[in-house]
Amino acid sequence: MPDFNRNHFELFHLPVAFGIDSQALEQAYRDVQAEVHPDRFAHAGEAEQRLAMQWATQVNEAYQTLKLPFERARYLLGLHGVNALDPNNTVMPADFLMQQMEWREQLAEASDRLDVHALDRLEQDLRAMAQRLERELADQIDGRQDYTTAAETLRKFRFMEKLLHDIQDAYEEIV
């Protein structure tokens, strides 16, 4: 039966690393999910049912966390005792913030002009940057085990996530 002390990676029998085998994760998720499906506990006692429910919730949460690169990195750094997204830390490299401002302005202009092509170009730039940061995270976490630098990269990643989210909103408004 469940061991609530295992971390998300151990839960799916995966190595504790940023680089992940997506297919192995999907498979492990389905296997574990089947094991804890509430139907299997339909005739069990109340306490056991409640436990199964908690277990299923944890399995879901673990899967959602490991699936997304941003959440996976954030969780991994947490396992190493690093809180990358401390809200009191507002210092980012100046050139990075300048670039963010520029992208924000481009996004606002493209939305105002209902310019889908401009949005497409911007989205390409944003995705390229997000992919670059993802590669850096893999190198910093798995390669060099440099969690302090990885935390800085994750903070940058956060801004890209926000921009990519907002550009989707802009598309939806135009359509």
Binding site: A84, N89, L154, R158, F159, K162
Partner: peptide
């Protein structure tokens, strides 16, 4: 110029 990593 500043940024909030907590929310982007």
């Amino acid at each position: 110029m500043v940024g909030a990593p907590a929310c982007g």
